[in-house]
C-alpha cells in the first residue's frame, strides 16, 4: 500500500499541475487581448474537447466498450437535445433510459 508521505506528494503534484493547466488561460487573458481568429479557434477547440470527453465517457471504460446500456441512454439524451428538449429532460431521460435498461438486465 502507498505510504502516507508518498500519497501526500502524489496528491500535491497532481493538484499543482492541474491548477497550473487551469490558471494559465485566465492569467494570460488578463494581460493580452486575443485576436478575433484565435478567439474563434479556442471556442471551437473547447467544443471539440467537450465532444471528445462526451464520446469517450459514453463508449469507453478501462480501454474497453462501456456497454450498450450507457450508449443507448446517451443517444436518447442526445436526440432529445437535438430536438431542443429542456436540459433537465435530456439529462433525466439519459439516466432513466440507462437505469431502466440495467434493471432489465442489459449491461
Amino acid at each position: 500500500m502507498t505510504g502516507t508521505s508518498t500519497l501526500l506528494v502524489a496528491i500535491a503534484v497532481l493538484a499543482v499541475g492541474t491548477y497550473a493547466c487551469r490558471v494559465a488561460g485566465p492569467l494570460l487573458r488578463a494581460r493580452v487581448t486575443l485576436p478575433e481568429q484565435v478567439e474563434r479557434l479556442t471556442g471551437r477547440a473547447t467544443v471539440v474537447l467537450l465532444a471528445a470527453v462526451a464520446a469517450t465517457s459514453t463508449l469507453i471504460v478501462d480501454h474497453g466498450f462501456a456497454g450498450p446500456a450507457r450508449l443507448v441512454g446517451v443517444v436518447v439524451g442526445g436526440l432529445l437535445a437535438w430536438r431542443r428538449a429542456p436540459f433537465a429532460a435530456v439529462v433525466l431521460a439519459a439516466a432513466g433510459t440507462t437505469a431502466a435498461l440495467r434493471a432489465c438486465g442489459v449491461t
Partner: peptide, 12 residues
C-alpha cells in the same frame, strides 16, 4: 444511470 447523465449534460 448516472454514468449516462454526464455525457448527456455535455451533449445538451
Amino acid at each position: 444511470g448516472l454514468d449516462a447523465a454526464f455525457p448527456a449534460v455535455l451533449l445538451a
